[in-house]
Design a binder for these strands. Structure first.
Lengths: 216, 216
DNA sequence: CCAAAAGTGTTGGCTGTACACCCATGT
DNA sequence: ACATGGGTGTACAGCCAACACTTTTGG
C-alpha cells in the first residue's frame, strides 16, 4: 500500500467451504474438477475472480451458483498462497446453508455433491486443510455467536437446534444444559406457535432474533 | 481453483500492523507516504508483493525492512479488498516486536515512527479499520495464547509481563489474580535467576517455555 | 397401551474476581 | 528511615457439567 513502484499482478482465486447439516450429520459441498490439474478429483467450489470483482462478491456468486441460496452466513476464512504449489492466491470463505433450501446446480460438469465431513475423499490442491480450518472456526463460533441461524428454517424446535449443534461439534450434548445455555445467550426467542407437524407431543417453536451474524 | 478459463490477474499488496509495548503503552508503527495518493499521510507499512513472493514472505520482508527484526510473532489477519476504493487486494498481517530489539529504518522517505494506539493520526486508505481489527485479534489472543513472548526479552519479571498485558488491554489488572492466571496457563516458567538489576528488591525471572506461537 | 419426543431442577466443582498487608532492598 | 516494588491467601459469586423422571401425543 506504499511506495512500491511496480504493481506485479497475479491470479487470485476464491474458495468456498459450504457446510450444511442434514440427517444429523455435518456435510460439506464438493465439486468434481473437470479440468487439469487434478482432473476428476473432488475439490472445494471456487474459481478465479472476475476482473472487477471483489473476493466477497466472488464468494457470494460462487455460493449462489452452486446452491442457489443467498443471504446466508458467509465469512472470510484465510488467504492461502501455496495450495497449488505455485504463486496464485486463494481467498477462502466459509458458508452455512439450510439443506432444505439449497438446490444443487445440475451442471453436466462439476456435479456438486454433499459429503459427510467425516467421509471426505482426498481433495485437490490440499483443500483438506481449508476444510479443517473452516471446521475449527465454525466450532469456535458456535459457542458465542448465532451462526446457526443460517442452518435452520425460520421456526424450529429446540431439539432441532440441538441436533444441529451436535452434528457440528461431533458429540452429544445434555438436553437440559443445552436449553439453559442457548436460552440464556439470548439469540433465540419463542414464537407463540407450536409444532403441529410433530407426530408426537407438540413442541414450542423458536426463532432467531436476528437472521444475520451477531456476536457477544 | 476450478474451471474458470481466464486467469484475470490483479495487484496484491501486503500490510503489516506492527505493535510494540513501550513506556507502559501499546504502540503501532506507521510510515509517512512518499507517493500519491495520500502523499505525506501516515499509513501502515506495506507494499505490493514482488512477482514470485508469497504474502507471508512479503510480510516477513516488510517487517524486517522497517524494524530489523525477524523470528517474531507474525500472523495473517484478513484480506481487504476495498481499502483503496479500487480493485486491488491487501493481505493484512499483524506482528509483535520487542521495542528494545527493534531498530527503525532511517530511510529519508517513509520515516517509520511509533504511535501510541490511543493517539494514531488519520491514516491513508482507511487503515484505521485494519488497526482496529488487529487490536481486537491481539486482545483476544492474549487470553489463550503465548503471543506476548514476542514483546518481551528472554527473561522478564512477572510485573513486566503484567505491564505488557495492561498496555494491550487498556486497563489495569489485579496483581495476585494475574500471577495465578498466567502461571496456571503454563506458558511461562521460572528461570533459576533473579533480577540483579532492580534497584530494589530482586525479583524472580521467568521465561516463555516456547518462543513461538502456541495456543491451548 | 406403547413408543417417541418434550419438558423440567438441583448439586458439586471449578474459575474468575475482589480485596490488603508484609518484606527485602537500595538510597 | 523511608520509598519502591515483590510477593502472598481467602471468600464469594457465577458458570458449567452431571444426572432421571414425568407428560403429552399419535398410532
Amino acid at each position: 500500500m506504499s511506495a512500491g513502484r511496480a504493481k506485479p499482478e497475479r491470479p487470485v482465486a476464491v474458495l468456498v467451504v459450504i457446510f450444511t447439516v442434514d440427517d444429523n450429520q455435518l456435510h460439506v459441498l464438493l465439486v468434481r474438477r473437470s479440468a487439469q490439474p487434478f482432473k476428476d478429483a473432488w475439490s472445494l467450489p471456487g474459481g478465479f475472480m472476475a476482473p472487477a470483482e471483489s473476493p466477497d462478491d466472488a464468494a457470494v456468486r460462487k455460493l449462489a451458483e452452486e446452491t442457489g441460496v443467498a443471504d446466508v452466513f458467509l465469512e472470510q476464512l484465510y488467504t492461502f498462497s501455496d495450495l497449488d504449489g505455485r504463486t496464485s492466491l486463494a481467498v477462502a470463505y466459509f458458508a452455512l446453508v439450510d439443506s432444505r433450501q439449497a438446490l444443487l446446480a445440475r451442471r453436466s460438469e462439476w456435479l456438486p455433491k454433499w459429503f459427510s465431513v467425516a467421509g471426505v475423499p482426498p481433495l485437490a490442491f490440499r483443500n483438506e486443510e481449508v476444510v479443517d480450518y473452516a471446521l475449527r472456526r465454525l466450532r469456535a463460533k458456535l459457542d458465542y455467536s448465532n451462526v446457526a441461524y443460517s442452518l435452520l428454517p425460520e421456526e424450529f424446535r429446540l431439539s432441532d437446534l440441538q441436533v444441529t449443534y451436535e452434528a457440528i461439534l461431533g458429540r452429544s450434548l445434555d438436553k437440559r444444559n443445552f436449553r439453559k445455555r442457548v436460552l440464556s445467550l439470548g439469540f433465540i426467542e419463542p414464537t407463540g406457535r407450536t409444532s403441529s407437524a410433530g407426530r408426537h407431543r407438540p413442541a414450542q417453536l423458536y426463532r432467531f432474533r436476528e437472521r444475520r451474524p451477531v456476536v457477544f
